[in-house]
């Protein structure tokens, strides 16, 4: 039996201090990723630090209009929070499209940011995987890659980032607050997750000993918002393609649109080129289609996932249409 030490911490500095002393440590909140991966022998922490008693369970409206979310706020609580439902529906919809009620009750905001890929080769310790064991090779590139990414891939890794919530947050705009041995720092949400490049084992900009304490959402952008998730079955499946859209109109034209994609990319994906293509354009099907083309102009398909390029474009067009309709309403 794989033994590990479990320790509960009551204060943030205690959690961070512990992390510095021991390598091979993992924080546990809801455990919906970590425990799976421990049982599968993919993650083998020697020490698990239980952070669920830390005072990070509040959602607080800041004076500047931003919304500060404690890392331990559950996915359910966040999705159902009055301000989130009113001012950030794209995040609420994204959360509710993910997992199941039971998992959302357990899963935390910080944990969701730290979700790991669902690539089956990553999740099987008997298979080569550069993310799990750097240098062993990528089994997906010439294996089955139907669920894998078409954007942001490298020759080392084509695994998708599985989160819905993160896609909503990229579209809404957010900042992560990290607490570490050297103090507190902030990182723009969309800069936090890293492209695989030559180091697919490095998934995010979290330094040793650091803990996510809060996500701060930008002040509400208003406009029309929509999160659309496309997948095989109607529920309980990771996205094949998803799109978070936040659209502000300027008359009949698009003033500013923010778009993020899930299921198609190696990280929660800001579709900058599509946003640029929309700015100042009439809010029509033709504009939406041009934006969708722009979003996937650099896409690379593998043997089984070429359909995701079509599906991803469709997600953009429909999400923009419905977000625009809401902006007009």
């Amino acid at each position: 039996m794989r033994q590990f030490e479990l320790e509960s911490v009551e204060a943030i500095d205690q959690a961070v201090r512990h992390r510095r002393v021991h390598d091979g440590q993992a924080f546990i909140a809801g455990g919906t990723t970590l425990l799976d991966l421990v049982k599968l022998d993919v993650m083998q922490p020697e020490k698990v630090v239980d952070v669920t008693r830390l005072p990070l369970k509040r959602i607080e409206l800041l004076d500047d209009g931003r919304l500060k979310i404690g890392a331990l706020v559950s996915n359910t609580e966040l999705a159902k929070h009055e301000i989130v439902m009113r001012d950030y529906p794209v995040i609420s919809e994204a959360l509710l499209s993910g997992a199941s009620t039971g998992l959302r009750n357990m899963a935390s905001t910080g944990g969701n940011v730290m979700q790991r890929t669902r690539c089956p080769y990553f999740r099987d310790p008997d298979m080569p995987c550069n993310k799990r064991e750097p240098g062993t090779g990528c089994s997906a590139i010439d294996g089955i890659n139907r669920n894998h990414a078409v954007l942001g891939t490298s020759e080392q890794c084509i695994a998708t980032h599985p989160s819905d919530m993160c896609v909503g947050m990229v579209a809404a705009g957010a900042t992560l607050v990290l607490e570490g041995p050297d103090g507190q720092r902030e990182v723009a949400f969309e800069d936090y997750h890293l492209l695989p490049g030559d180091t697919p084992e490095r998934e995010h900009d979290l330094k040793p000993g650091e803990l996510i304490t809060h996500v701060i959402l930008d002040a509400p952008r208003g406009g029309g918002q929509h999160y659309l998730k496309l997948r095989d079955r109607a529920s309980y499946e990771f996205a094949l393609a998803s799109c978070a859209a936040v659209v502000n109109l300027d008359g009949d034209n698009i003033g500013e649109a923010r778009l993020a994609l899930g299921g198609v990319a190696t990280k929660p994906w800001r579709a900058d080129a599509a946003e640029a293509a929309l700015k100042g354009q009439p809010a029509t099907q033709e504009s939406f289609e041009r934006a969708a083309e722009a979003a996937f102009s650099d896409a690379v398909a593998y043997s089984h996932n070429g359909f995701k390029i079509t599906l991803g474009k469709q997600a953009i067009v429909r999400a923009l249409r419905d977000a625009t309709a809401r902006a007009r309403a």
Binding site: R118, M127, S139, G143, I144, N147, R233, A234, S235, E237
Partner: peptide, 21 residues
Amino acid sequence: DPHGYPYNNNLADYIVPVNAD
């Protein structure tokens, strides 16, 4: 997969209908 590896031998990756379907 092409190497004979069983890719989806679990209930997350082998898709069956759920209540919402």
